[in-house]
């Protein structure tokens, strides 16, 4: 017998023990190294021999598994997959099925496969598939973040539009006759005139209007108030009858505009809108034309 044959016989002997799980760890490692180092023909012979032995084992009993075992195996693997995905999911999952639920569903398959059991199992499998698809979660997150970004860009654009309209109002020189319509503010998507017209009071001269930005819950008065320089206090009466002061509007060159927060007040229900000077004298007042609100 040549050294080659001897080596091959030894490998075959070790291969037999390995397939039957009878090699200790160190021997198993040594066997695998020897197998890797062997020539291709010997390696293939050993691999083929191991496959035959693995199929035969040692006189396995002629018993068949219950048909339901297949589904229990599938459920067990699906649960293990789900547990792994839950552990590595980038975003929290909806939640793994409770142990009780899983146990109930698996038990449906213990004695046999009922239609209800099959439906439950299919449902659970689909749910597991959804939960484990972290790619879906990532995609949903990207869409959500994209939506927020688009909204921010949209409102930034609106803000720029407002500034352009305000600049147009200042430059239009439509003194005492300005309205939201006249300078195109009514065309702004989220802005709605809530005070179409204001007239001067107490010896002052001027005019104005107010638009509401319901998205940001703010009002934007645009006024011309000759002879009423300085700060004008902006106020209105809400639906509950209480007068609310929004803030101040500085009038320097006759025409002015400002964003004033209208938190806590339904901007579409403003009435009795007033601008008063520092002494409390009303300079401009809402004119009830039946259009406001």
């Amino acid at each position: 017998m040549s050294a080659h044959d001897s080596e091959r016989d030894e490998l075959i002997e070790q291969a037999q023990l390995q397939v039957l799980g009878l090699l200790e760890e160190a021997e198993r490692v040594r066997f695998e190294r020897c197998l890797e180092a062997a020539d291709a023909e010997t390696r293939q012979a050993v691999i083929q021999f191991q496959a035959e032995l693995a199929r035969e084992q040692l006189c396995l009993p002629a018993v068949e598994p219950e048909p339901s075992l297949k589904f229990r195996v599938l459920a067990e693997v699906a649960e293990a997959v789900q547990d792994r995905d839950a552990a590595f999911a980038p975003i929290a999952s909806i939640g793994p099925a409770s142990a009780e639920l899983v146990a109930n569903q698996v038990s449906d398959y213990h004695e046999g496969i009922s239609e209800v059991g099959r439906a439950n199992w299919e449902f659970r499998r689909e749910a597991a598939r959804w939960r484990r698809s972290s790619a879906m979660w990532r995609a949903a997150s990207l869409v959500f973040a994209g939506g927020i970004g688009a909204s921010l860009l949209f409102y930034a654009e609106l803000s720029r539009e407002y500034q352009a309209l305000a600049a147009r109002a200042f430059s239009s020189g439509v003194e005492r006759e300005i309205t939201a319509k006249s300078i195109g503010l009514e065309s702004a998507l989220t802005w709605r005139p809530v005070v179409h017209s204001m007239s001067a009071c107490g010896g002052f001269t001027g005019a104005g209007f107010v638009v509401a930005d319901s998205v940001h819950n703010r009002i934007i008065p645009v006024v011309v108030a000759d002879g009423a320089g300085g700060l004008l206090t902006v106020s209105a009466v809400g639906d509950d009858g209480v007068r609310v002061t929004f803030g101040s509007l500085r009038v320097g060159t006759g025409i002015a505009s400002a964003d004033l927060a209208a938190d806590g007040l339904q901007v579409r229900q403003l009435r009795d809108f007033e601008l008063a000077d520092e002494h409390g004298l009303v300079v401009l007042r809402w004119v009830d034309t039946g259009q406001a609100g």
Binding site: Q18, V19, E32, Q48, Q50, A54, Q57
Partner: peptide
């Protein structure tokens, strides 16, 4: 290349 699937499974 190191073992057939049946060997892997039974091992």
């Amino acid at each position: 290349e190191r073992a057939k699937l049946i060997t892997w499974v039974m091992l």
